[in-house]
């Protein structure tokens, strides 16, 4: 059975959803504003005869219909970074400011991390954590290529992350782009569902709850925590938010999702979730011709 069938009751136009899941994903790049600006990046692509299309909702994103994003001059200069369109959403929801201290709990390979640094004009501190050495090396490589100087890279288990090395004891903001069952990446990795099991969904949900709890605890009162996944499973999305609403000092706040989305679900397979999860966002592939995604914004209350 196709695991996606379990979501049919949640999705208005399930046929359009399935059809979108079978189409390959357009190649998208983000302009790295630490090194250049969108105008100059466009001029450089023009000079080289590389076609690109604007992404209506964000000036820093281009779609490249033909080219591989990695083989052109602006890419070599670290002006461009391949980043799926929908994955630019959580950093915008987090809205980090220059000079702040921001934790990215699951940072590698670093598309969102380096986007945070760029949004902060490369000032302040982004702590980019991951628990896998190989993935950390791709994070380091990408950060170097993009000229990021405000990134501290750590290798810890996000669930009991320690701030001891840093000389400060809380973050202004945190982002948990959690390890997940990755169903929403099916357009990029057509084999991703072959290894899908409900057991894995449940075990990864336990990890997600642990990391998100730690993120809320490590963020100052009044600070913002954004949670995102690339899966459709409510067990890994609304259920995780529902858990931290119960166990930690935080509340869901709405944010203006720049892509078409639908509300988070309050009921799933006999479980019901806090009503405020309707202010979280599900982004299905057929809504904007992107990958699938889930994003929630929390405010720390005490």
């Amino acid at each position: 059975m196709n695991p996606l069938e379990r979501y049919a009751p949640l999705i208005d136009d399930y046929d359009a959803f399935l059809a979108a899941c079978e189409r390959p994903l357009p190649s998208v790049v983000r302009v790295n504003t630490i090194k250049t600006d969108p105008d100059r990046a466009r001029r450089a692509l023009d000079e080289e005869g590389v076609d690109y299309e604007p992404v209506e909702w964000h000036d820093d994103l281009f779609r490249l219909p033909d080219a591989s994003p990695g083989t052109n001059w602006p890419y070599f200069h670290g002006w461009l970074h391949g980043q799926e369109e929908v994955s630019a959403v959580p950093a915008l929801a987090l809205d980090p400011q220059p000079g702040e201290k921001v934790w990215d709990s699951c940072a590698a390979p670093g598309s969102k991390t380096t986007q945070l640094s760029a949004m902060m004009d490369d000032r302040g501190v982004v702590v980019g954590n991951d628990n896998n050495l190989g993935r950390l090396s791709s994070l380091r490589h990408n950060a170097e290529r993009l000229g990021v100087t405000n990134l501290v890279v750590t290798k810890q288990d996000g669930r009991n992350f320690s701030l001891k090395p840093f000389g400060f004891d809380e973050f202004d903001r945190a982002i948990v782009d959690a390890p997940c069952s990755c169903e929403g990446t099916i357009r990029k990795n057509p084999t991703t569902l072959e290894e899908w099991t409900l057991e894995h969904v449940h075990s990864v949900a336990a990890v997600q709850k642990g990391i998100l709890s730690r993120a809320v605890q490590a963020t100052k009162p009044g600070g913002t925590v954004v949670y995102s996944t690339c899966t459709f499973a409510p067990e890994e999305n609304e259920a995780v938010i529902d858990h931290v609403l119960e166990t930690e000092n935080c509340e869901v706040v709405d944010f203006d999702c720049p892509l078409d989305s639908v509300s988070g679900v309050t009921e799933w397979e006999g479980d019901s979730y806090d009503p405020s999860v309707t202010n979280t966002h599900r982004i299905y592939p057929h809504l904007n011709d992107t990958g699938g995604f889930y994003c929630a914004k929390l405010e720390v209350t005490a």
Partner: peptide
């Protein structure tokens, strides 16, 4: 940051 600092990366 405090020195010494035991992390995987510190800037560029």
């Amino acid at each position: 940051a405090p020195s010494p600092m035991a992390v995987e990366g510190l800037g560029m």
